[in-house]
Design a protein around this nucleic acid. Structure first.
Length: 290
DNA sequence: CACTTGACCTGTCCGC
DNA sequence: TGCGGACAGGTCAAGT
């Protein structure tokens, strides 16, 4: 589900909503979603104040006053939804919300704050997780050691972008884009959208792409992700922001989930096929393999 | 080492 | 209506 723009949208929402709140109680169901030792939870999470909400790649980092951090990956269907004290749901709730009363059957972890508000970690497919780690150890975990640069950072250049792909010469470009060790945060939606923008076929080998191809891809990827953040991310199925509301980028998508519809650039019918193990959408006229 | 495939889970949708 | 199979936005371990 959530790629960089969705996780960033959640981060911004939580940054507004939970900093300064004090964790009072935590309950969880499967240890797969919350594999933390009870003693650590008691010592470093209960009673802690939230001091910051950060993001690296698709990972959320909620910093605590105990110098511990909640490291959270939403994977495909994870949601982090804040609810103020005594908010009634049901009749009259906004129709841009996907979820009602919480907790529900997908709730894996519930954080109760001292002021009566709550944070719910929902995850239908149980791929996601919440791990409590010392803040100083977060950069040392395997994922953080291997993950590539943030593509939206101001100092990330087209030259650096191109350089990151050098060792993937024999990969199809889509597989390389999805590889988190090359560039951070790209998932299936923005891979398809940026490749369409750059007029590159997803199965073109990285090694045959020109500098100009990479330049176009760099700008398209950044444009598409920035636009999505502006629109609050993409809600295809499950994604919601920190207030439980949908994002609207999908309304602006040019190829993703638009199979059978005309290409906005040339009118050719968009087709869907499998590439890099994932559903892939292209305009067969704009994105030629050879 | 680099690349591809299957597994992890639950829910939904589509065809028979 | 019921049932089986395919598919879903991510990542890792195992395979080639």
């Amino acid at each position: 589900m959530p790629e960089l723009p969705e996780v960033e949208t959640v981060r911004r929402g939580l940054h507004e909503l939970i900093i300064g709140r004090v964790v009072k109680k935590v309950v969880h169901d499967t240890p797969k979603s919350f594999p933390n030792a009870a003693a650590d939870v008691e010592q470093f999470l209960i009673g802690a104040t939230i001091t910051d909400v950060r993001r690296r790649a698709k990972v959320l980092l909620i910093d605590l006053s105990t110098d511990y951090t909640l490291v959270i990956h939403l994977k495909m269907t994870g949601q982090l939804v804040f609810r103020a004290k005594d908010v009634a749901f049901g009749a009259g709730h906004p129709n841009d919300s996907l979820i009602g009363e919480l907790p529900d059957r997908s709730t894996r972890v519930t954080f109760d704050f001292a002021d009566g508000s709550h944070l719910y970690f929902n995850d239908q497919r149980k791929f996601g997780w919440v791990k409590l780690l010392p803040t100083l150890e977060v950069p040392n975990i395997d994922f953080m050691q291997r993950v590539g640069p943030e593509p939206l950072e101001a100092d990330f250049t087209p030259e650096q972008f191109r350089e990151r792909f050098k060792r993937k010469a024999k990969s199809p470009i889509k597989a390389a884009l999805l590889d988190q060790t090359v560039i951070a945060g790209v998932g299936n939606i923005y891979a398809d959208e940026s490749l369409w923008g750059a007029k590159i076929h997803p199965l073109r080998k990285v090694g045959v792409l020109t500098d100009k191809d990479f330049d176009r891809l760099y700008y398209e990827l950044r444009d598409v992700m920035n636009l999505s953040i502006e629109k609050g991310g993409s809600t295809d199925r499950n994604y919601v922001n920190a207030e439980g509301k949908k994002g609207s980028y999908i309304d602006f998508a040019r190829v993703f989930r638009r199979e059978g519809k005309p290409c906005p650039r040339c009118g050719t019918i968009i087709v869907k096929f499998k590439a890099a193990g994932r559903g892939t959408h292209i305009c067969p006229n704009c994105q030629k393999l050879m």
